[in-house]
Every structure is written in C-alpha cells, then in structure tokens.
Simulated assay, not measured.
Amino acid sequence: MPDQQSTLRAQRRAETQRAIQAHAVRLFTERGYDATTVNDVAEAAGVSPMTVYRHFPTKEDLVLIDQHAQLVADRIAASPANQPLVRRIGGALIESTAALTGGRGDGLSASGQFLLARLRLMISTPALRAKHLDNNYALQQAIVTALGDDTDPDAVFHAHAAASACLAAMHTALVRWAEDDGLSELPDLVAKALTAAFGDDAVRDRPDAR
C-alpha cells in the first residue's frame, strides 16, 4: 500500500508539473517571456507561486525542465555495449526525438508541438539561451552515467567528449527544426547532423536511415 501511495503522489506531482509548465509556455509565447511573471503563471495554473517554485526553482526552469535526459539515458543503457560510443549516443538521441515528436511521417504529437514551442522560446530569449547550457551539461552527465564505465578515467574522458560532440550536432538539428517550424522530421535532422559530424558510421545501424 505505501508503494501505491508513493506512486500516486509521484503521478500527481508529475501532472501538476506538466500543467504548470504548459500554462507557462503558453503565456510566454503569447505575452513574451520577460513580460510574464511567475505570479502570472501561478494564477493561470490555479496554484500558488510557492507551488510553482516547488516544481520549478527558477523562472527559466519553467521552459527548460523536461524528461529528455532520462529518455536518452534509458535508450543508451539498453543499447549494445560493444557499439562505438557515438553510435550508442547518436542512436539514443534519434530514438528519443522520435518518441517526443511522434516519429517519422506521423505529424507532430502534442509533446512534439510543446517541444517546438519551448525550443522557439529558448532560441529567442537571451536568458534561456544562457541557462540552456546548464541543461546541456546535465544531459551530458546523464549520458556518461548511462554508458556505465566510470572506473577508467580515460573511458570517462572519451564518453564526455563523445557526448559533448553528439549534443552539439543535435543542437544544430534542433535549431534547424525550429527555423523550419517543425515541418522537417526531427529524427532525420538529428541523423543528418550526426552524419555530417562523424560520417555514415554514426547512424549506420539505424533501420529507417535514408
């Protein structure tokens, strides 16, 4: 019973967080990031400002916090350990963006549309662009942890280098996707960016690669 109660509390917390963030992104998009206060977000979401801060410690977090790191980490952990680092990381990035946007040829899912709105805000708002670097570092750490070998300093160094390079390629794809208003397939753009940076071997095993 305690486990079930913990699960329900976690679900309610996640639902509250999603609702607050959805209202925040909507208001930031409609009114502008700088013109919208945390109190405005709290009022729209029907919660107190303290509740907003409990879920999102800073105003920037209302746009930047997401579950992408866990999604990528789970896919890396499930990938064959004998594959090259770049292919393991790149494959996870492609798969996670497909999950977030609805895949290829299916149109943007609701989560994909939400990702696009958040991305537009990140690109257009200086304060968010700066904070985005912290988010990227957290994602890089999650990738390195998921790769698993934390006992060999050289292996950790190689993992950090590969993760950083793959994330730079993905960032290029994300900016292009936002500029294209989400009309391109984001997984394809990520694959193309990885191929441009590392060659065909980076995504060679992708079953739907073009």
Score class of each variant (00 low, 15 high):
191 A>V: 09
47 V>G: 09
87 R>F: 02
198 F>D: 12
64 L>P: 02
75 R>W: 04
178 A>C: 13
67 Q>K: 02
7 T>W: 04
103 G>L: 12
65 I>V: 11
22 A>Y: 05
105 G>T: 00
135 N>M: 03
116 L>H: 05
168 A>H: 06
84 P>K: 07
65 I>G: 11
41 V>D: 01
119 L>A: 05
43 E>N: 08
137 Y>I: 10
26 R>K: 04
37 T>H: 02
193 A>P: 03
62 L>N: 03
57 P>I: 02
205 D>E: 14
135 N>K: 11
151 T>Y: 09
96 S>M: 08
191 A>G: 07
79 S>V: 08
135 N>Q: 11
47 V>A: 13
118 R>C: 03
179 E>I: 09
55 H>Q: 12
150 D>Q: 09
26 R>A: 15
82 N>Q: 13
115 L>G: 00
69 A>H: 14
11 Q>H: 08
142 A>K: 07
56 F>I: 06
21 Q>M: 03
36 T>W: 02
141 Q>R: 15
122 M>S: 10
190 V>D: 06
109 S>V: 00
127 A>T: 12
180 D>H: 09
16 T>H: 15
27 L>K: 02
148 G>T: 05
60 E>L: 05
48 S>F: 06
18 R>C: 10
138 A>R: 05
172 T>G: 10
179 E>Y: 08
59 K>T: 03
160 H>L: 08
176 R>G: 11
146 A>W: 00
121 L>A: 00
106 D>V: 06
168 A>T: 15
123 I>R: 05
179 E>H: 10
70 Q>E: 14
96 S>L: 09
36 T>A: 04
161 A>Q: 04
23 H>M: 10
54 R>T: 08
45 A>F: 07
35 A>M: 08
85 L>K: 13
26 R>V: 02
6 S>N: 13
